[in-house]
C-alpha cells in the first residue's frame, strides 16, 4: 500500500514536482539526510525516462509515482510504454559517449540509467503486471520507524 501516490501528465514540467514530493516523503520516512540528493536525482531520472517514453509513443496516459515507507523507503515509477522500449539499458563507455554517431536521445537514456544504477543500490526494472509498461522500483533504507 503506497503512502503517497502521485500521477502526472507526461510533461517535463511535472518531473520537478515529482522530485520535490519524493524527497519530502523520503525525509518524512527517515531516509538519511546524506542520501536525499541521490533520492532526488534517481526519482527525477526515472520520471524523466517515463515522460520521454510516453512522448515517444504519443501516450497521453499519466505517469505514476508510488512512495511507500512500510519497512524501507520504496519508490515505484510506472510508465505505460511498450515493454520493448526498456531493452538496451546499458551504461555507455566514455569513447561512445562522445561519439558523433550517438544521438542525443540515446546518450541521455544511457546516462540516465548509469545514474540510476550508480545511485540506487536496490534497483529493479520490470514489466507492470497489467498491460504494457515498465515499473522502475527503487529502495532506500530508513533510519527510524
Amino acid at each position: 500500500m503506497a503512502t503517497v501516490r502521485l500521477s502526472f501528465s507526461p510533461a517535463p514540467v511535472h518531473v520537478r514536482t515529482a522530485r520535490l514530493v519524493g524527497v519530502a516523503v523520503a525525509r518524512r520516512a527517515g531516509v538519511a539526510e546524506e542520501l536525499l540528493d541521490e533520492v532526488r536525482l534517481a526519482i527525477g531520472e526515472a520520471c524523466t525516462r517515463a515522460v520521454a517514453l510516453h512522448n515517444q509513443y504519443g501516450l497521453p496516459d499519466l505517469v505514476t509515482v508510488e512512495m511507500s515507507d512500510s519497512d524501507s523507503y520504496s519508490v515505484r515509477v510506472i510508465d505505460h510504454a511498450p515493454i520493448e522500449a526498456s531493452v538496451g539499458l546499458t551504461k555507455l563507455p566514455p569513447d561512445e559517449l562522445a561519439d558523433e554517431s550517438l544521438t542525443d536521445e540515446a546518450l541521455t537514456t544511457g546516462v540516465g540509467f548509469a545514474l540510476l544504477a550508480g545511485f540506487v543500490d536496490d534497483l529493479q526494472v520490470r514489466p507492470v503486471e497489467d498491460g504494457p509498461g515498465t515499473e522502475v522500483r527503487m529502495v532506500w533504507p530508513v533510519q527510524r520507524r
Binding site: L41, G44, E45, L97, D104, T108, T109, G112, L115
Partner: peptide, 20 residues
C-alpha cells in the same frame, strides 16, 4: 543546484558541436 541526464546530454551536445 541540480543536474540530470538531460542536462548532461546538452553539455555533451555542445562539446560535439564545438569540436566540429
Amino acid at each position: 543546484e541540480f543536474l540530470d541526464s538531460t542536462g548532461l546530454g546538452v553539455l555533451v551536445g555542445a562539446m560535439k558541436r564545438l569540436r566540429v
